[in-house]
Amino acid sequence: MFVNITCKPGTTRNIETGSWRMGLKPKFLHKNCKACGLCAFICPEGVIEGKEKNTFYCYYNYCKGCGICAEECPGQDIIMVEEGEKV
């Protein structure tokens, strides 16, 4: 007897991990962004996208709120804000 214990890559898209955030979420200020792309590169979930300066954003449905992007942004252009705040 077998149980399916493997899965196709990409199937975690079905699980919206945004609900795991515990009170804080990243806010992209779009003021001092140099488009270095570090935030998108280091995001453990791969949910930050953007190309030009001051265009980066994240998918809040999946962002777990770890805050690494805010910690690492060289221009301090990302900050962590209360969940309720408008971004």
Binding site: V3, I5, T6, C7, K8, P9, T11
Partner: peptide
């Protein structure tokens, strides 16, 4: 034909 093996399996599975 990629595939994930060794996944997490919580109390449901």
């Amino acid at each position: 034909n990629p595939l994930s093996m060794g996944i997490v399996s919580d109390a449901r599975f």
